[in-house]
């Protein structure tokens, strides 16, 4: 066990954990930020996506020992009151069915739009290809990313 200092959603957290513990489980079990979901543990489904220094990253693959000193944002820290344009677009389009994968989808979409605020449909489809939605809300996700991009640009 070692001590790690993390900066999550602009707050400092000190946690005790084994160095190989993925950021995902530190967020969920130790810091009570459960919006970041476990789906596969091998970086294939995207349910655990967070922003690390502004980039979308799979928190299930990021050992806590490498997360020190990085600026980490989770779904809980994406906006003050759920008013990020991507969150608002998700609400407007009524994207979720079961809702479990959606925080990961929103984190992927928001990081992507940060880098490309006026994407084409095929760029949206490429960007969201790594996030699985078992309810298959893909049409709505695609539309919501487009709506969010219009809100941003």
């Amino acid at each position: 066990m070692s001590t790690f200092n993390l900066k999550i959603n602009n707050k400092k957290h000190t946690v005790e954990a084994d160095a190989d513990t993925p950021l995902l489980w530190v967020l969920r079990d130790q810091i009570d930020l459960v919006g970041t979901k476990y789906g596969c543990g091998i970086g294939q489904c995207g349910a655990c996506t967070v922003h690390v220094d502004g980039n979308a990253m799979r928190s299930c693959l990021l050992p806590i020992s490498q997360a020190e000193g990085m600026r980490i944002t989770t779904i809980e820290g994406l906006s003050e009151d759920g008013n990020h344009p991507v969150q608002q677009a998700w609400k407007e389009i009524d994207v979720p069915q079961c809702g479990y994968c959606q925080s990961g989808q929103i984190m992927t979409a928001s990081a992507f739009l940060n880098q490309n605020s006026n994407p084409s449909n095929s760029e949206i489809r490429d960007a969201m290809h790594g996030n699985i939605c078992r309810c298959a809300s893909y049409n709505s996700i695609e539309k919501a990313v487009k709506v969010a991009s219009e809100k941003i640009s």
């Binding site: 919006g35 779904i75 609400k91 979720p96 809702g99 925080s103």
Partner: peptide, 12 residues
């Protein structure tokens, strides 16, 4: 809209 939408999009 989904009655749980606000909780879902903010990770509650």
């Amino acid at each position: 809209g989904n009655v749980d939408i606000d909780k879902i999009i903010t990770g509650k």
